[in-house]
């Protein structure tokens, strides 16, 4: 286990260094990631019934979006297409370490470079967070980061079967946008859509940590949200392992 952790740490460091030369591109990624929740903020500020916490909620959503961003359809899937994954398969380490390290490094850069944007939005909207609520959201944020990686990584493995991986991942992104809390906070969804969104995994990837951070959930709702997040993490981990085993059987690299 220690060896795996050391390898992950090394991979993250290697990727952090590698991506440091592309800081300008990461700034554009930050804006790309933040634009949907920002639009949500502008729209819902026009709606009187949205409540005074809407600014804080969408600021938290932007933070969660930056810390859970996943681009495996651009990184991992491209390695499947161009045969780059063959090198990872030959190394005496789990193949997930490569995409995981790159994912965490990109998230780290995106959060660091996104701090000015978060500060501007926070200043402009007059946000209000309590330290206790933010602390309660931290485990949910970690679960969201794991869940989103597993979700996008599983979808990106569609590259083993089809060339249209971007379309597959884009479909997943639409679901996260619509039911995850970016298009509208869960509390503002009409029934039965709100209940459906609460049991699906998408809210746990984005909106749930933000709702906890703004302190808008009761203890029972928070416990239910955590239960859903943990269950879906187990399910998606199983899906990712299954997709990997099936995909790798099908994979044949250049020259094989």
């Amino acid at each position: 286990m220690n060896r795996i952790l050391r390898l992950v740490r090394l991979e993250i460091w290697r990727q952090v260094i590698g991506w440091s030369g592309a800081w300008w591109f990461i700034v554009t990624l930050v804006l790309g990631q933040a634009v949907a929740p920002l639009l949500g903020l502008f729209v819902w500020r026009q709606v009187p019934g949205a409540g005074p916490q809407i600014g804080s909620y969408y600021l938290a959503v932007i933070g969660v979006a930056l810390l859970t961003a996943s681009f495996e359809n651009h990184t991992f899937a491209q390695a499947i297409y161009n045969g780059g994954i063959a090198a990872a398969l030959l190394r005496p380490q789990p193949a997930v370490i490569g995409p995981l390290g790159e994912n965490l490094a990109i998230r780290l850069w995106m959060f660091v470079l996104g701090i000015p944007l978060l500060a501007v939005v926070g200043f402009a909207t007059g946000v209000n967070f309590t330290p206790l609520a933010v602390l309660a959201a931290v485990p949910a944020l970690v679960l969201a980061a794991v869940l989103h990686f597993l979700f996008v990584w599983s979808l990106a493995m569609a590259a083993f079967w089809t060339e249209r991986v971007h379309a597959v991942v884009a479909f997943g992104t639409v679901l996260v946008f619509l039911l995850g809390g970016s298009a509208a906070p869960n509390a503002l969804l009409p029934d039965p859509l709100r209940t459906i969104a609460q049991v699906l995994p998408f809210r746990s990837m984005l909106g749930f940590p933000a709702e906890l951070a703004t302190g808008s959930l009761s203890s029972a709702d928070a416990a239910a949200g955590y239960t859903v997040a943990v269950l879906w993490t187990v399910v998606l981990a199983g899906c990712a392992v299954g997709a990997w085993r099936l995909g790798i059987r099908r994979y044949s690299t250049v020259g094989a």
Partner: peptide
């Protein structure tokens, strides 16, 4: 097929978002 489905899903999401907003205002 993929492009048609994606375009449909994307537009449905946009229309659904508007629908959500207009349930409140």
């Amino acid at each position: 097929f993929f492009d048609a489905v994606l375009a449909f899903v994307d537009l449905t999401a946009s229309v659904a978002t508007i629908g959500l907003v207009f349930t409140q205002t």
